[in-house]
C-alpha cells in the first residue's frame, strides 16, 4: 500500500456556508511532490470543487502562495515530505479577503503597489533622439535585489502590522518604491515620499522582520523599509533645520 499524508484544507463556499471550514483529504505521499501537486491531485482525483490559484509551478508567477501550517509559502516549491508525518494544514493567505476556498482578493494589494508609483519618473523626459538612459553594472546592483519581487504577497501575510492596520502600505510595495528610488535614472523619490512618509507609510512598520524571512526571492523588504526610515528621518530633519533649503 502507498503511504499517504493527511491534508486539512480550508474551504469557503459562500453560497453554501457563510463560514469557512476545514476539509480533510488523504493524498499519496510521493517523494517528488510539492504541496501544489497534492492540491492538483485532490482537484483531479478526489474533489473537483476545490478552488485555488496556480500557474507556473516554478516559483516565478507568484500565484500559489498559501498559509501552510500557519506560515505563508509558495506551494509550488515546498515539498510534502518536509511535513512528514502530517497532517498539513492549508489555508488562504492571511489578512486578505477570501473569495472562495484558497483564492484571495488581490485588489487592495494591487492598489497599494500602484500608489507608490513603481515606474521611472523623470522631471523632463529625454527626446528619443538624445539616446537611451545608460546605466553601469554598479548602478544596477543598487536596486536589483528589490526588482526581484514577484508580487506573491507572502510578505503581507507574514506581517502582523498588515493585519492590524489594513491601510498600511506594506512590505512589497515599499520594497518596490525603493527599487525605483535607488535607480539612478529615476527622479521621483519626492513623489513617493508624499505617499510613504504619511501615517500609512513606512513608520507603521515595527520591524517584525518576517516579511524578509518568508520572501521566496530574497528581496528583503524589511531592509528596504529600514533604509527608507533612515531616508525619511534625514528628510524630516533637513526640512526642519533647513527650511529654506531644497524641498
Amino acid at each position: 500500500m502507498e503511504t499517504t499524508i493527511n491534508l486539512q484544507v480550508l474551504r469557503y463556499i459562500p453560497e453554501k456556508d457563510p463560514d469557512p471550514f476545514y476539509q480533510e483529504y488523504e493524498v499519496p505521499l510521493r517523494e517528488e511532490w510539492v504541496i501544489l501537486d497534492a492540491l492538483n491531485y485532490i482537484k483531479d482525483q478526489i474533489d473537483g470543487t476545490l478552488s485555488y490559484r496556480w500557474s507556473c509551478r516554478m516559483g516565478v508567477c507568484g500565484s500559489c502562495g498559501m498559509m501552510v501550517n500557519e506560515k505563508p509559502i509558495l506551494t509550488c516549491e515546498t515539498f510534502l515530505e518536509k511535513y512528514m508525518p502530517g497532517p498539513i494544514r492549508i489555508a488562504p493567505l492571511n489578512y486578505f479577503g477570501v473569495i472562495r476556498d484558497l483564492v484571495v482578493e488581490t485588489d487592495g494589494f494591487m492598489e497599494k503597489v500602484k500608489r507608490v508609483k513603481p515606474w521611472i519618473i523623470r522631471d523632463k523626459e529625454k527626446a528619443p533622439l538624445e539616446g537611451e538612459y545608460l546605466q553601469t553594472p554598479e548602478e544596477l546592483s543598487e536596486y536589483k535585489q528589490y526588482s526581484m519581487c514577484i508580487n506573491c504577497m507572502l510578505c503581507y501575510s507574514a506581517c502582523p502590522v498588515v493585519g492590524l492596520e489594513p491601510q498600511f502600505i506594506g512590505p512589497a510595495a515599499i520594497a518596490l518604491a525603493q527599487r525605483y528610488n535607488y535607480d539612478n535614472r529615476d527622479e521621483g523619490q519626492n513623489q513617493r515620499n508624499d505617499v510613504l512618509l504619511t501615517d500609512d507609510g513606512i513608520f507603521e512598520c515595527t520591524l517584525v522582520g518576517e516579511c524578509s524571512e518568508v520572501c521566496p526571492k530574497k528581496v528583503d523588504p524589511a531592509g528596504a523599509i529600514q533604509r527608507y526610515k533612515v531616508q525619511g528621518a534625514t528628510e524630516w530633519w533637513t526640512s526642519v533645520l533647513l527650511p529654506f533649503g531644497k524641498k
Partner: peptide
C-alpha cells in the same frame, strides 16, 4: 464576487 470572508485577527496573534 459574492461576499468575501475576512478573518478576524486574534489579540493573541
Amino acid at each position: 464576487r459574492p461576499t468575501s470572508y475576512h478573518h478576524k485577527m486574534s489579540i493573541f496573534w
